[in-house]
């Protein structure tokens, strides 16, 4: 079994040792980074450091050296963001640092995305994302979108200040099985419930799963308004979307 000391990249080794504390997450990260090529570890370290110039350079070099785009995305970019997500969840870092890491990820994805799009890989599912009516905040939503796309979802981004009608139009147009709603203000959170009611009135509730998130949103609030799931952060959003899709496919009539 792989040990922490088997991780070759010193930055990654130190980060996992210092900031990852849950046994299952230690095991997963140790397994991932000991398996990952050293170039991928270096890219992940660049992501964790929020160094966009470095990630840009290393990603280009890795492609040139013959690494697959999917390998760079999974073992480098997403693996690095996984550690970033844990540090954010545990309050070791805050939004400015996460934004810098996201900027680095974007630099890497700039090389990877065109290759993946051209390869025609089927997405896991389509997710419609938007900040609710009256709310113009989008940092959290954008981080979720980046992580969802990086994890294999197609995302339709409705932007900010999204009316219930706009969500309904998008569900009808794209036939997406999941929507994600975000709110940063306690004053706009009720618009999540209003949107769910509008989706029910439109007769679409059975076909779409609703996940919600945002700084003031809680599991209790999500339950009260009838959402199918709540994600505390971008990492949780991705695992929630995966769980919801798996459950929906399991329960679908044969």
């Amino acid at each position: 079994m792989a040990e922490l000391s088997d991780i070759k990249n010193a930055t990654i080794r130190a980060e996992v040792e210092e900031f990852v504390t849950r046994p299952e997450e230690i095991a997963r990260n140790v397994a991932l980074f000991t398996r990952a090529h050293e170039r991928m570890q270096a890219i992940a370290a660049g992501i964790i450091d929020g160094d966009d110039d470095l990630v840009d350079k290393l990603t280009a070099e890795a492609l040139k050296a013959g690494h697959e785009a999917l390998e760079i995305m999974d073992d480098g970019l997403i693996a690095g963001m996984g550690v970033v997500g844990i540090k954010f969840r545990e309050n070791f870092i805050f939004v400015p640092e996460v934004l810098a890491c996201a900027r680095a990820m974007k630099a890497g994805m700039g090389h990877i995305e065109p290759i993946l799009s051209a390869s025609g890989v089927d997405p896991i599912a389509t997710v419609i994302m938007g900040t609710v009516k009256g709310d113009l905040h989008d940092i959290g939503k954008n981080l979720c979108i980046m992580m969802l796309r990086g994890s294999g979802f197609e995302v339709i981004d409705l932007g900010v200040d999204t009316s219930a009608d706009a969500f309904i139009d998008a569900i009808e147009t794209h036939g997406a099985p999941i929507i994600g709603m975000s709110a940063l203000l306690t004053t706009t959170m009720p618009n999540m419930g209003k949107t769910i009611e509008a989706i029910i009135d439109a007769g679409l509730r059975e076909q779409v799963l609703v996940m919600v998130g945002g700084a003031p949103v809680t599991q209790e609030f999500a339950d009260d308004m009838g959402a199918d799931g709540y994600g505390k952060d971008a990492l949780a959003c991705v695992s929630l979307a995966k769980q919801l899709i798996e459950a929906k496919r399991r329960n679908a009539p044969a």
Partner: peptide, 15 residues
Amino acid sequence: MQWEQKDNWPTVRMR
């Protein structure tokens, strides 16, 4: 600015 209606808060277009 987005001054909104009776049932929504006015807000700054920070984008």
